[in-house]
Design a binder for these strands. Sequence first.
DNA 1: ACCTGAACACCGTTCAAGT
DNA 2: ACCTGAACACCGTTCAAGT
Lengths: 187, 187
Amino acid sequence: MPTPARTSLEAIIRAARGVLEAEGLDGLTMQRVADAVGVRGPSLYKRVRDRTDLIRLSVDDAARELTVALDDAADADDPRVNLRALADTLRRFAHAYPTSFGLLFAPTRGDVRLGPDTLAASSRAVLETAGALAGSARALEAARTVVAWAYGFISMELAGAFQLGGDVDVAYSYGVDRITEAIALRD
Amino acid sequence: MPTPARTSLEAIIRAARGVLEAEGLDGLTMQRVADAVGVRGPSLYKRVRDRTDLIRLSVDDAARELTVALDDAADADDPRVNLRALADTLRRFAHAYPTSFGLLFAPTRGDVRLGPDTLAASSRAVLETAGALAGSARALEAARTVVAWAYGFISMELAGAFQLGGDVDVAYSYGVDRITEAIALRD
DNA sequence: ACCTGAACACCGTTCAAGT
DNA sequence: ACCTGAACACCGTTCAAGT
């Protein structure tokens, strides 16, 4: 006799993302997530292969949320305005979900890797805006330059590497301008 | 009656770094490190507070090695040449010790954080070269821009985010040039 | 068809007992 | 003074038994 489902993959991912940001990666235990969705630990394995899979699903879910935010952000005509909006959106995302952000490109964790489709979707808005600034032939490398800088800057910020002083908001804003001009230089 | 020491903190850190790069962060178990230095697990706690402490010590050790390499790299008169040498040195370090590199600024792991002195020492060469390019008043933000870009680029490279094709070496080299010109622009 | 308790392997850590 | 085996708590994971 079938038992009605007492939870769902969506609920599990939502709970896992909450735990991930509240307690960090080490705090994400199967027990903790099971408690949060009102089920026993072993039941999670009905919907999720293992803990690594759950982490990947959570980061993937966060990446999709980021993609939506980025797509919404770049709605102006001026590509410089759009690039700033994209950079600000990425930084807001990172502050809201630092652990997920850190795992997005974490070189340390080969096991938690996003699918190419998720990556491509989240790159779309940046690629388009970068292309408008640098020329479509240079779109890819321009986009990489912007994302690399922004990811690096925000990672260092979150890691507390900017202890030498100075206003981090100002530094970020200034950096966006510099990078924008750097990729807008035609040759 | 005193027992002669059968290992040392240095040997433990060396072994831990080896395991860290060979097996990744999850592979760094106390048991594994103990085996590598020829001692039982509990003995490690005579020299190390806990596993987190051992990770931090390992990353700190890697950071010191990086500092030496950076100091040696920037020996030319032309700051552009030096900046390229510094960028190449950082990238070589990252490829040699990807896990340590990832932990250097990992936003995800607040527990494994380098001391300000270690950070300051490793920044010195970059700060000096950046200052020579951007002017000493702009040295700090110029250095941050370079390091943020390089860290982000290499992280994405190691994370496999550059699957869209193109020669990564060329992209890195090109990026160094762009960033160099961006921070060399006086205003 | 999903959920559960019991069980297992593994790991970090402590500690009393050895030398 | 350092090392060890035993022990404990905790966690991921499996599985037979329940409904």
